[in-house]
Structure formats: C-alpha cells, structure tokens
C-alpha cells in the first residue's frame, strides 16, 4: 500500500461537524460534558482529549469590510518526523508508524501512559486517558484503511472538504486547489508539504498560514534525544510512567532555564 493522506480543503468546510460525531461513533468515544461555548464561534469541546480525537475550530475576522468565518478540523497530523514517536520511551515503541501508509497510531498493548507523546507533540494532539492510562488520539481509522474503507471523518464529509487517497495524489490535488483559490484572489497556503518532513493530514488554508491556530514552523523539540538518554539506564521491564514523568519534568525545567537564560542574554 502506498503512503496515504487526508486532504483537508478548508475552502469547502462548512463546519457541519459530521466528522466530529462520526469519529466518536466509529471509535466508541463518549460525549464530554460541555457548556457554552468551548471556543470561538460554536466550537465545542474546548480541546482534543482522550474522548475527543477530532474537533472543528471556528475563526472569525473582518477584512476590507467583509467577514470571513472559517473552520479548521483539528486532529493528529500523522507527521513523518513525529515527535510523539521520538519521545515514546518504551521498546518497542508504543507510538507506532505504519511503514506503508505513514499512519501514526498508539499500540495500546505497549503504552504505559507516561505522557511523553503528550509533552512533545507540537500540535497538542495525544492525551492520556486517566481511566486506562493509555495515550489516545486519531488513529487515521487504520482499522478501516486496512479493510479498504475511508476514514470515518472522510466518509461522512458532505462537501468534499475531506479527501482520502495516496499522499502524492493528495499533494497534487492540494496544489490544484490552492492554484484555483489564488486565481480567485485568496491567499492559500498548503500546510503539510514540508512541515515535519511531510504530514499525512494536509491542509489547504485559504486564508493563509496565520489564521488557523497552527504552529508556523512546527519542530520536534531539540531535547527529545535527552529523554532517551535519561531513560536508558532503566530496563524496559521496569520502565514506569512515573519514571518517564520524572524525566520529562527534569527536562522541562532544563528547557525553561535555557529559555530564561536566552531571555537574559537578550536583555
């Protein structure tokens, strides 16, 4: 099987949120208790969580007297250079890449719920479920892909905003859509060509890169190698979430100190 991707053509998304419910339905995820409103516009819940693997975010702006109301479906981007995999401390890694498709998923039989992936993901995607202490996120519906079905969110999308296929095909499509948008006077950006060596969820952002609450140049944190180093002395069998937590906490402090130092230098 070739490398796969979902193209998210946001110029066509109308925020019906069929994808949000279809994801919960297919993955048997319970509803969260929410109140008015989790975010701008009609956004709910507030963020991704162990129970919410995809979420439509709402964006509103006034430009040259006319209004733009835009929507972005947020979920795991299935990065080629995935910080979550790099950070995953167990051996073999619980955060796994399916080599053929490029899909990144959690092998729950190995996950110890340490939260390293949560800590290092530049998009705030994985979340550890307190109930079973496993990391949870979008699986790209790999169970469906393996049986020749589209991901649940893509299947349910009414307006063609979500398209699933081979990654190179999706990139071609993304470029064609962006070209059309450009001709119509928009300022599109394709997010996912180069970001983290290529994403498997590729956005066409009609209003450009700045408008959709996405990191401009997402990176795998530099100290991620240190984590492995720190944890090396601990054998696989005895590695616990607590130990990883400790290591992460330590690195976090180091990082904060470094930042503080840099700030000082600037002054």
């Amino acid at each position: 099987m070739a490398e796969k991707a979902v193209l998210l053509d946001l110029s066509k998304c109308m925020a019906c949120r069929g994808c949000q419910v279809a994801c919960k339905q297919w993955n048997d995820l319970p509803a969260e208790k929410t109140t008015f409103f989790g975010g701008p516009g009609y956004q709910n819940p507030k963020d991704l969580s162990p129970q919410t693997w995809t979420l439509v975010k709402f964006f509103e702006k006034k430009e040259n007297g006319s209004l733009i109301w835009a929507f972005r479906k947020h979920q795991c981007l299935h990065c080629s250079d995935a910080a979550c995999i790099a950070a995953c401390p167990v051996t073999p890694k619980a955060m796994t890449r399916d080599k053929e498709t490029g899909i990144v998923y959690v092998d729950e039989s190995r996950c110890i719920g340490c939260g390293a992936c949560v800590e290092y993901c530049p998009f705030g995607v994985p979340h550890v479920d307190e109930k079973d202490e496993k990391s949870k996120k979008c699986t790209f519906c790999i169970d469906r892909i393996q049986e020749g079905l589209e991901p649940a969110c893509v299947k349910t999308c009414p307006s063609g905003a979500l398209i699933f296929g081979d990654r190179d095909e999706m990139l071609k499509k993304a470029k064609a859509i962006a070209k059309k948008l450009k001709m119509a006077g928009r300022n599109p950006y394709i997010y996912g060509i180069k970001e983290l060596k290529g994403l498997h969820k590729i956005y066409v952002l009609p209003e450009g890169l700045d408008f959709y609450d996405l990191p401009k140049s997402p990176k795998v944190p530099e100290d991620i190698g240190l984590l492995e180093g720190l944890l090396k002395p601990i054998s696989v069998a005895t590695l616990t979430a607590a130990a990883v937590g400790l290591a992460i906490g330590y690195l976090k402090t180091v990082r904060q100190e470094q930042v503080a130092e840099k700030e000082k230098e600037k002054c």
Partner: peptide, 26 residues
Amino acid sequence: RVTEHWQTGAMTRSLPWLVELMPNMF
C-alpha cells in the same frame, strides 16, 4: 435552527454527542 439540533430538540437534546456540540440556549 443549528446543524447540531433538530426542531424542538425532542430528537437531539437527548443524544449526548449532539448535546456536547451545542449544549446551551444562546
């Protein structure tokens, strides 16, 4: 009306997934 509810809510205000999306009168 909004996408996430239907009419008087009789067939949607008891569905947790839809209530999650549109929990309150606004």
